[in-house]
Amino acid sequence: MQPFIQFESVSKSFGSLAVIDSLDLTIHKGEFLSLLGPSGSGKTTILMMLAGFERPTRGTITLDGMRIDQLPPHRREMGVVFQNYALFPHMTVAENVAFPLEMKRLPRHEIARKVERALDMVRLGHLKNRRPSQLSGGQQQRVALTRALVFEPRVILMDEPLGALDKQLREHMQLEIRELHKRLGLTIVFVTHDQSEALTMSDRIAVFNAGKVEQIDSPHAIYDTPRTRFVAQFIGETNLIEADVVNVQNGHATIVLGADLAAKVRSGPELQAGQKALFSLRPERMRLGADPAGDNALDMTITDCIYHGDHMRVQLAKGNFTFTARCERLAGNWTVGTPVVVSFDPRDCTVLAP
């Protein structure tokens, strides 16, 4: 697939502080790419360089084969949506949406037509004469999104656009943006530190740490087969344990986790007998009280049960070795001190070379 947006050996420093280091990144036309990482990982700086608000210290950025890193923001054909909406408080909804079209000096009748069509697209036509202060947070966010869409940009850039919304409204807006992306075939670059948001909305996720991409992949692959310790720990929740590799054979390995607990796991090509490895197993992949005839059946004891409404979090231990499992609320009558068999499939865990 031909690259639509390409970062080639891009670095960005502020004085002596290096924020981005030799970044190579390809974004395809029509895809929804999330830049995910903790605060200070460089993801917003990448968005600002793409928008034209910052320039790379080194390297090049191209859009559809044309170099853009030297172009001013207004010549890049990109719509930007910020967390604080950046709406003009003295303008109506329609006037806010019309603003970028007026800057392009389009005829008034064409502006009116485009504004009306854009507002109807996000179901805000009936609010066109209100001012931002008369709207809810979700409605303001939709106005900001509409203003970014109205001049039909080639790319939409979003910087933590849902961070100020409450949980229920944020989840609703995630689905709205996802539906707009699919319906209009938009190319969207979305900055977030919210793992759930990235997993829900994206075609691909680029996980950033200290100015570098740790892994770029589909949400499914990022969650189920993390390639580094950072990705395994940052995305979702996992039991991450240092283990000893005993043997490797026919695509599987036997490892010792601790307290003489041995497990059979999938083996990557880099695993070798006698080395240390990192074992990662998601809490929801574990079964309690299951048939111990499977590949992995560990005898442990329940040390705590925590109620979470739709599920239970169960703490398990044997000696100094501990696990956390997530169970359906009605999966069993688990109580502290109960011995239990913990089982899991070798395909459900990941083993990383250190």
Rank of each mutant, 00 (worst) to 15 (best):
V265E: 03
M286D: 00
K264F: 03
V265K: 06
L184G: 06
Q139E: 15
Q6F: 01
V155S: 04
A243S: 12
K264R: 14
V80Q: 00
D217V: 00
Q141P: 04
T62R: 14
L63Y: 11
A262G: 06
A144P: 00
G319D: 04
V231T: 11
H90I: 10
G40C: 12
L25N: 00
V143I: 13
S343I: 06
L23Q: 02
T192P: 05
T335G: 02
R178K: 14
R183Y: 02
L124A: 06
V189K: 01
Q139R: 08
F82Q: 09
D194W: 05
H74K: 13
P153D: 10
S136K: 09
L23Y: 04
M312G: 05
D203V: 07
F7R: 01
A297E: 02
P219D: 11
E8A: 14
R123C: 10
N84W: 06
Q2S: 14
N296H: 05
L106F: 01
R170G: 04
S39E: 10
V341A: 13
R204I: 09
T187C: 08
L261G: 02
G40W: 09
D295F: 11
F230I: 05
G138K: 03
S34F: 08
F234W: 05
L25C: 03
G37A: 09
G319R: 02
I68G: 01
D260I: 06
R76L: 10
R326I: 12
M78S: 13
E54S: 11
D348G: 15
I235W: 01
I61G: 04
D291C: 07
T228A: 11
K43Q: 08
R326K: 13
Q140D: 05
F279L: 11
R113L: 12
E116S: 15
I177K: 03
H252F: 15
L288H: 01
G37V: 08
V19E: 06
P219T: 11
D295P: 12
P153W: 04
A325P: 02
E77W: 01
K29A: 14
G332C: 07
E179P: 01
